[in-house]
């Protein structure tokens, strides 16, 4: 059980770390949104999965309810995070922000 928890948490940390590095390293606004929007969802899924399993250590009705509530967080993040990313990109395109290209002089 503990091994499973640790495995999930490590996966979550790995994805969050990847997302954080991606946000720092990517060249422009749009490509930075990509790790921010994408890896957050999977990272949160893994993290909450680990925490929910850890919470079920002493199995009871309350603990099960709490774990289900944790998955509600995942559900809402899954709904709202991609939508937020989508609308931010949309707003950026409308405001006229050019996307990054490899040529020099274009930002």
């Amino acid at each position: 059980m503990n091994i499973l928890v640790i495995l999930f948490l490590v996966i979550g940390v790995f994805f969050f770390l990847g997302g954080a590095i991606g946000i720092m390293r990517m060249p422009d606004f749009y490509s930075r949104l990509h790790p921010a929007g994408k890896l957050d969802t999977l990272g949160i899924l893994a993290m909450v999965m680990g925490l929910a399993i850890y919470n079920l250590h002493h199995f009871s009705y309350e603990a099960l309810l709490l774990s289900l509530k944790m998955f509600l967080i995942v559900f809402f993040v899954f709904l709202s995070s991609p939508t937020a990313t989508h609308s931010i990109v949309d707003a950026g395109m409308r405001a006229g922000l050019r996307h990054w290209t490899k040529k020099k002089g274009k930002g």
């Binding site: 709904l79 939508t83 989508h86 609308s87 949309d90």
Partner: peptide, 15 residues
Amino acid sequence: WVPSDLIIKSVCRIL
């Protein structure tokens, strides 16, 4: 005017 976005609309309707 901004064309209403179906994705944002329907997700907000759920949320």
